[in-house]
Each structure stands twice: as structure tokens, then as C-alpha cells.
Design a protein around this nucleic acid. Structure first.
Lengths: 333, 333
DNA sequence: ATATTGATCGTGCACGTTAACGGTAAGGTT
DNA sequence: AACCTTACCGTTAACGTGCACGATCAATAT
């Protein structure tokens, strides 16, 4: 059973293919009555447009590329979920690629996306290199950065207000009476790390607290590293009474390390995470964390990309969107 | 800057388009020397084949549809990761759709996939209805079911050996000295639930243990339900000393409920999960669980689908693949 | 010398859709 | 009566690729 084409519909309706095209695409120059009949017949025959013919003609697919750093990370899963939902509601399909936080994968993923001829690209860039992003700008494929951005690169992006987020978290810890507050941050060269560090410093300064520079550690985003880093941190004297982590993943590592040391979370060591991935509530001591509106972020990123695709060649001004975070206070502080 | 086509390459090489086609597609009837030159030029010009033209001609995209029940569930994330990786390595792109465990979404997702003209479909079906799957069989689109299958539906699938998995888990609990063992199962009409129940019964019977039918509960896969169900379960007298859960998600709910009741995991209540999602190790009491080789499963599903796509019209025999699980013993038992 | 073969390459059409363009008929305008 | 407008519709070419077919030429066989 072959696919139904416009020609089949045309034949059935006794009109030309073009008329069918006009009917299906809401074009003018068509009798409302014939249009109605054609749509009727198309429906009956279960006509499905051939997207390859469409794409070939118009060089517009209705497909977006999404490149995430690690699907297993619930943060990205949630992002992806938001993107997928709003894209689907808008008639877009998404092609997903996972870079495993590796630079070379990102590079080839972008190449693949170009070859796939997607209409646009959503990227949560890896941290090691921005060369690929620069290359991407030279092609005329619209793209939006997600979660991370590069200061020195003028691109569209959707991120969160990390200065404010970290500041609020530190303020919260200070209110709880903590003074020796550590920061296990992400890689220092990515924007979110820089800004959170800024927020951390501001909050400490505002409350007249001195900063123990050895309490500021740089880390990877993965859980295993959080564990190691926390081990080091807790060995220091005097040891911190509170830690702000770069992610809930890192916080998990910290909690593990604290458990090993016989420290009680909250009493002996207050921990604040970042992201609010869903099992932050499932821990023995539910985790206080800075909630990132992940689905909303995905949705917003899609909307942004869509306007870019709409305007195309027009030099639309740069979309730099910062979403607000929310401190969710639980038992770990 | 327009896209480079085969015509451009042909012109540059001083040959016809057809010759370029032959060179690029490893066809015979071509001089090795000219072939080499053409490939060289194609490389220099950075020629990228137009997949829409290709798709239109050959009605073969290199795209697969993947329909998952819930991306936020780490089980599906891991599955997706496995699929994505092996697909990418094989030159396939994947279009991902999320059904939110809702039947109507699955239905439209399949429609979308058909419209997208993917080469094949990988589906982790929702539990409520198999009508869509039946419809899908009537189209000639090859597809493979993932994780769940339907007894009465003759389709290709990749699942795990659930009878054995549950049996091993129950055996483990019995070895630990438990006799009052409960089962919080998934929805009773899906295959994995049925088989795990079978495994549970077999293991109990083999050890001469009587089964308290009120210890067998049906549940949804979501975490919130695990909590409620466990509440009910723990209120029973005599209460069970061990629980086998349908998923790690459910186990989390059980652990929460046990915590509310002041029960100590392992000592007062042994808990076994299913799936082995990555944060099973992150819990206060690391969770004993039946590990499903998720990435391998994704990979296997892709491979299976690929052979189906290869053989196309040929009536290949049904692929019913059962992967082995592995009991991972941790501190919760 | 002529016929045959094989290697190599070009020609032309088809895939399904869109859009520019031209055509037709009915009605109105000068 | 000759023209223009309007509303509607069909013809046709084009998007980039792959495949069937035919063409060419040199080498070999008869």
C-alpha cells in the first residue's frame, strides 16, 4: 500500500495538483468550496505530506537539532522534556544528540546537525572549548545556547541568573548562622561558574564575612568528583560548616563524603545543591537547593529559537535571556 | 553562501553528476582514478549530501523514531543514551518523542513518526492500551518494542528475563532469612509485571514458603504511588519484612514510607528495587536492586531494528530478545 | 577486418512538492 | 464593441539525488 500523494488527491477531486497544494497550504486564489472538498478528500485518503519533497523544495524541514551534554543527567533530561513538549506542540520534531561532555563529540554533533539540515539548533555546550560554537556562527544556522554561555561570544542564549542564585543560597546559609561557607564550583572558565562565584563573594562581603580562599574549589559536574573534592574540603582545618555545590550531583558526592566522615548533614555540615533534580527530595535528608526552572528553560529556549528561525536573515538583536531561580529550603540546611 | 551540490562537484571535476554519484556511493562502473579525484574535490568543497533529495529519491531517510514513556525516568534516559550512541555510530539520527505515559500521546507520536517517514521505530509502549501498536503493525514500518511487550501481540521486542529477575531477587531475600516477602508490582496487564509475579511465586514455592496474597500489590511506575502503596502495605499485620519493588522509583517511595514509620531499612525492612538507576547507590542505605542492562538494551534494540530495516519486506522471523539481569546486592537487604 | 566484449561515463527521467506564470471565463468599464 | 479586472485554476520548471539505459572507446575474439 503506497503512500498517498497530492496527485492521488488531485485525481480523486478532479482538479490539478496545484489546486490541491493551494487548498492544503491555505493559499489564496481558490474557491472556498473546492478547498473544502479537497480537504475532505485528503482527509478520507489519509493524505500525509511527504516531508522530503517539502524539504527539497522549500529547504525548510520542521526539525530542530538538540545537543545535550549528558542525557543521564536529570537536569538535561528535564530540559529536553521541556523542549520536546513545546516543539511538538508547535509542529517541530527534534533530533537529539548526546555529547557525553566531550568536545570532539560536540564538534561532530554540530556537523551532523548541519548535514541533517535542521532549521535550528539548541545546544548545551560542553565546557572545554568554544571553537565549535564560533564555527557555528559562520554558518547561517540559527542556534541558541542553553544553560551555559561564553562571555566573549556574542550569541543568543537562555541561562539562569547565577549571580543572584548563588547569592540567595549563601544568604540563606548565613541566615542559618553559618560563617565558614565553602563553594564547590564548576569549571572556572564557564559562565555559570564565574557568576556563581561572583554571587558567593558578594553575599559574603555584604555580611562582612571574610572569605577563606581555600574554601573555594573548582570541580567537574559529575558526581564522582564531588565526592573527591568534598573529601579534600572536609580535611581542612578549620573545616567549613556549610557548602554550596555547583549541582545536586556534586551535592550527592558531598553527602557521601560527609557520611564517610561520620558527619551529620545539616547539623555538622549544611549542604546546598543547585538544579533541584527530582530526587533531591528522596534523600535521607532532603536537599536544600537552588531550583532551576528546567522545563520552562527548555520551553523558553525553543521559543527563542523559533523567533530566530522566523526572522532568518534579518539581523535580530541578540537574545540574552536570564531566568530567575528559586531557593528551595529543605532539611539539609 | 549556498550549499554545495553534486552538480558543483561534477563541474569542478569535469564529469557528469552521475559519475559523482557513483563515486560517492561506492558504485561500480567507475575508474578508480576519477573516483579518487572526485572524492578529493568533494572533500575540498565540503560537499554534504542533501538528505531531502536523497530521501525523496530512495524513500530512505537515515532517521529512526524513538518513543519513550518518560524521559525524566533515568531508566528511559539510559535506554535513550544507548540507542543514541549506537545509532550515531551507524549513521542514523534519532527523533525523540515523549509520551508522558499517556496513551493518547503515544497514538499521536506514532502518527508523527509515520509522517516524519522514519526508517523504523523504537517504542517503549505505555501500559494502558495496545491498539496503537496493533495499528502500527498494519503499516509496513518496522518497529521494535522496548522493555514492555504484549503477550497476545506478535511483535519484535527486546526485554529482560523478568521471571528470572524476580526469582533471583526473591531467592536473595529468602537467603537473607526473610519469609514474609511482599511484592509491589507494576500494572498487572503488562508483560513485565506478569512475569515478575510468576518469578516471585516460583521462588516462594520452591522454598516452601506460603504466599500472603495481600502482600502482592499492584502499582503504577511512578514514585508517588510507591509511597502510598507502601503505606498501605506496612499497615498490615503481620507486616512484611522484605519488599521487592517494580522499579527503583517505587523503592524510593517505599523507603520514604518506611522512614515515616520509623522503620530502619535492611534491619526492619529489606528493600529490593529494579532497574538499578544510577542514584540507587546515593541513598542513605544503598539499594539492592535487579540491574537491567539499560544501555545494552538500547543498543540491542537498535541492532534489531536495523536488521529489520535491512530485510524490509522479507518476512523475517519474529525477534523476541530477552536480556539477562543481574542482582546487585547492596546494604538495603 | 569485423564482431564482440568490457570498462567507463553521460543522458534523461523520476521522486513529491511548491511557486512563478499563464490561461480562462465571467463580469464590469470605457 | 473593445478593453480591463477579478477570481479561479492548470502548466511547468525546479529543488538534489539515484537509477535505468544508452553511448563511447579501446581491447579482444572471430
Amino acid at each position: 500500500m503506497d503512500r498517498v500523494t497530492m496527485e492521488d488527491v488531485a485525481e480523486e477531486a478532479g482538479v490539478s495538483i496545484n489546486t490541491v497544494s493551494r487548498a492544503l497550504n491555505d493559499k489564496p486564489d481558490i474557491n472556498p468550496q473546492t478547498k473544502k472538498e479537497i480537504l475532505q478528500i485528503a482527509e478520507e485518503l489519509n493524505y500525509q505530506p511527504n516531508r522530503f519533497a517539502k524539504g527539497l523544495r522549500s529547504s525548510k524541514t520542521s526539525t530542530l537539532g538538540v545537543i545535550v551534554a549528558d542525557i543521564l543527567n536529570p537536569f538535561f533530561s528535564a530540559l529536553l522534556k521541556g523542549i520536546e513538549k513545546s516543539a511538538r506542540e508547535d509542529g517541530y520534531s527534534i533530533i537529539v544528540q548526546d555529547t557525553d561532555e566531550k568536545y570532539e563529540n560536540e564538534q561532530s554533533a554540530i556537523q551532523t546537525a548541519l548535514a541533517e539540515q535542521v532549521d535550528g539548533l539548541l545546544i548545551s555546550p560542553v565546557q572545554t572549548n568554544d571553537q565549535t560554537i564560533m564555527d557555528l556562527r559562520n554558518s547561517d544556522l540559527p542556534f541558541v545556547l542553553l544553560g551555559r554561555h561564553f562571555d566573549d561570544l556574542e550569541t543568543h542564549y537562555v541561562v539562569t541568573d547565577d549571580v543572584k542564585g548563588a547569592k540567595t543560597a549563601v544568604n540563606h546559609l548565613i541566615e542559618k548562622g553559618h560563617e565558614r561557607i565553602a563553594l564547590i564550583n564548576g569549571p572556572s572558565h564557564i559562565s555559570s561558574s564565574k557568576e556563581r562565584l561572583r554571587g558567593y563573594r558578594q553575599a559574603m562581603k555584604n555580611h562582612g564575612l571574610s572569605i577563606n580562599e581555600s574554601f573555594i574549589l573548582e570541580d567537574n559536574v559529575m558526581i564522582e568528583h564531588g565526592y573527591e573534592t568534598a573529601k579534600n574540603l572536609l580535611a581542612k582545618t578549620p573545616s567549613p560548616t556549610a557548602v554550596l555545590c555547583y549541582s545536586d550531583f556534586v551535592a550527592l558526592g558531598v553527602i557521601k563524603a560527609a557520611r564517610d566522615e561520620g558527619l551529620k548533614i545539616s547539623d555538622d555540615l549544611a549542604v546546598v545543591g543547585y538544579d533541584d533534580i527530582f530526587f533531591a527530595t528522596c534523600l535521607e535528608v532532603p536537599l536544600t537547593t537552588v531550583r532551576i526552572p528546567k522545563k520552562k528553560m527548555g520551553k523558553k529556549a525553543f521559543k527563542t529559537l523559533k523567533t530566530l528561525i522566523g526572522h532568518e536573515e534579518n539581523v535580530t538583536e541578540l537574545q540574552k535571556i536570564k531566568l530567575e531561580t528559586e531557593l528551595v529550603s529543605r532539611q539539609s540546611t
